[in-house]
């Protein structure tokens, strides 16, 4: 086995860390820790972007790293923490599957994602193409987090984690999206977050809880 360049080794290690953090988010029941894990995932993503920017010399990657740092490591977690405090949602214990079951389903999802990414990474010509599988796995695991949770807050965290995965996928397959797309996505996420924040208060006012089960029944049935 030939040894890879050291920068690529670090990038691979960061990718593996990203996957591990996704699993940690899947298992975590405390919403505050969940948000902290999201911030950590953003920080790992930012580090990976910076490293890739330094290796490839692409200037716009520096810009997107800065964007990740401001938005996903600092601003959004701060906003979420504030929402948690004001809404008083600290736990999301009532999930569809128990932790062990969710983890094992997550493992299957990872196997599926790695198989799914094989043709994509075969097409890509970047040095980091093998990490595309991890990006797809992060997206699907975030999706699983959203599916298994009941509280709106953890679903939003899952949504943001999914965006992290998409970003990482674009980065490892094509060295990042064009600047204008990246800016648009960042703005979308920001606006979505702000709108959802307002939404949380509306949901709580209507149903006295953030449990999204209540949204499944029609008004007449209640």
């Amino acid at each position: 086995m030939t040894a890879q360049p050291f920068v690529l080794q670090i990038l691979n290690a960061l990718a593996a860390l990203l996957l591990l953090l996704s699993f940690a988010m899947l298992a975590q029941r405390r919403v505050v820790t969940l948000v902290n894990l999201l911030a950590l995932q953003g920080a790992v993503l930012c580090a990976a972007t910076l490293l890739l920017a330094w290796r490839t010399g692409e200037a716009h990657l520096y810009f997107s790293a800065a964007l990740t740092l401001c938005l996903k490591v600092a601003f959004l977690p701060w906003l979420l923490h504030r929402l948690i405090r004001r809404l008083g949602v600290y736990w999301d214990t009532d999930t569809l599957l128990d932790t062990t079951g969710t983890m094992l389903v997550g493992l299957l999802v990872v196997v599926f994602a790695f198989g799914l990414a094989q043709p994509i990474s075969a097409l890509a010509s970047t040095a980091t193409r093998s990490a595309v599988g991890i990006a797809v796995a992060v997206i699907l695991l975030a999706f699983l987090t959203m599916i298994t949770r009941r509280k709106a807050m953890s679903q939003v965290v899952g949504f943001l984690s999914m965006e992290n995965g998409l970003f990482f996928g674009a980065m490892s397959a094509t060295y990042g999206m064009p600047m204008i797309v990246e800016l648009g996505v960042a703005l979308d996420v920001l606006v979505a977050m702000l709108v959802l924040g307002v939404f949380f208060f509306q949901i709580r006012e209507q149903f006295d809880s953030l449990d999204l089960e209540h949204l499944q029944s029609l008004k007449e049935d209640r």
């Binding site: 080794q9 290690a13 990718a15 593996a16 996957l19 062990t100 983890m103 493992l107 990872v110 991890i134």
Partner: peptide, 24 residues
């Protein structure tokens, strides 16, 4: 205990999958 050991299994299989994907 099952949860603890399932986590151990998860770590080990993640190691296997990451090795297969990244070759590292």
């Amino acid at each position: 205990a099952p949860q603890f050991l399932a986590t151990a299994y998860l770590f080990a299989s993640l190691g296997l999958l990451v090795h297969l994907l990244l070759g590292a």
